[in-house]
Nucleic acid binder design. Structure first.
Lengths: 228, 228
DNA sequence: ACCTGAACACCGTTCAAGT
DNA sequence: ACCTGAACACCGTTCAAGT
């Protein structure tokens, strides 16, 4: 078999791009060296020339997607920009619902390198112009980033179910109905909120959560300022 | 080979227990049907008699661990109880750092059943006696739960690195040093907070984040003033 | 009803060989 | 330097057979 011509030469970027497409189409199980080599019309050895192993490939796919989400321009008050950045990440995770489990694994390979610092920098820059003491910046930014991760993870889980053809209203209805039939003594709270679940908007609720934390950050400033 | 005597009979609980032990010891890759059958002195067919497949086994392991964390008694003001429940989950995830990726996968199998409703009920019961309008309960509880998930996930990633024998101070030092050498134009925020990262306490920072959200929920009342 | 263990399809990875 | 593709060890799962 002849070697590839320069036009369709294999590059790391082309491999990562194909990996993201396979992950988007069929989830984590959709990316194997078989499907990847088939799509790229090559053999496993060619992949391994450009990428050390599957973990590094998944890391690169994650960095590529998160980097794209952080690259969008945002303008406005610091609060507006934080909302826009957070929503950008939220939407990116919804489009690529394989991200959260993969990110959780990647973080444990190198928790303070890779993608987390870029998100911290992006959100933290806006926190630092919020007018709160510098001693609170790290904790305030952590709270925002952790909330974004958690909310995006839950939403991605929903997105993966919806990708299987389930209707969103049906999904929420089924949960709400089940909760309304729970024993009031054991589960008073789920019974009480079942109605709110049925009609809620995920993105709107996500932003309300961001606002809660922003209120806490700017409102709690007098308390936090006692720290050196 | 003789069948098992009644004393060492295989049960679903015994299998789940062994699975948790293997996951705790060696992470997600530590649990295979080979290691599991070896530890239980049986064959794969015996496991499949009690458990449908590996996914169900992982779901059961997750439910077992989260259930244990939620079972502890907590007393105090609603805020105190929320802090205690959140910290219990945080600590459980630190002891079982394989949880976050697994939970992310499990949620996408059935996002509104399984373990999330139990956490919502537990935290939501305390939110409902915080004195805020019922229309805000669902969103407020979501914000708390998502924050807990995100923060616990990040912390679990750290825990997995530390489990490999890395010293915590060395890990934070390495990150802080790297950030202090970044270009100030590109990464002003990471440079600014590098010093705070070095000495911070994860659990304390986690609880401060909970307090930020509680402050936001109760309407930016001065810190702690709602406590009797 | 509960368990055994060989067998199967599939996976990530390696590596001698080609150009 | 870059790619090929057969081969290897390991994985989850099945199932005919035992008690």
């Amino acid at each position: 078999m002849a070697q590839r011509t320069r036009a369709d030469a294999l590059t790391r970027e082309r491999i990562v791009e194909a990996a993201v497409e396979l992950l988007d189409a069929d989830g984590e199980s959709g990316l194997t060296f078989r499907t990847l080599t088939e799509r790229l019309s090559t053999g496993p050895g060619a992949i391994y020339w450009h990428v050390a192993n599957k973990g590094e490939l998944l890391d690169a796919a994650t960095a590529s997607v998160i980097g794209g989400a952080l690259a969008v321009e945002v303008t406005g008050t610091p609060q507006d920009e934080i909302r826009a950045i957070a929503l950008g990440l939220f939407d990116a995770v919804e489009r690529h619902p394989w991200l959260p489990p993969q990110l959780a694994v990647q973080l444990s390979r190198s928790p303070w390198s890779s993608v987390t610092p870029r998100i911290f920098e992006s959100i933290g820059q806006r926190v630092s112009v919020l007018g709160v003491p510098e001693s609170t910046w790290f904790t305030a930014t952590s709270a925002l980033v952790h909330y974004v991760f958690g909310a995006a993870g839950q939403n991605a889980a929903n997105a993966r179910v919806l990708a299987r053809g389930v209707d969103r209203a049906d999904l929420l209805d089924a949960a709400a109905n089940a909760w309304e039939e729970l024993d009031p003594g054991d589960h008073p709270f789920l019974r009480a909120i079942a109605g709110q679940v049925r009609g809620h908007d995920d993105r709107e609720q996500f932003l309300t959560g961001i606002d809660l934390i922003l209120t806490g950050i700017t409102g709690a400033a007098p308390c936090g300022s006692t720290r050196p």
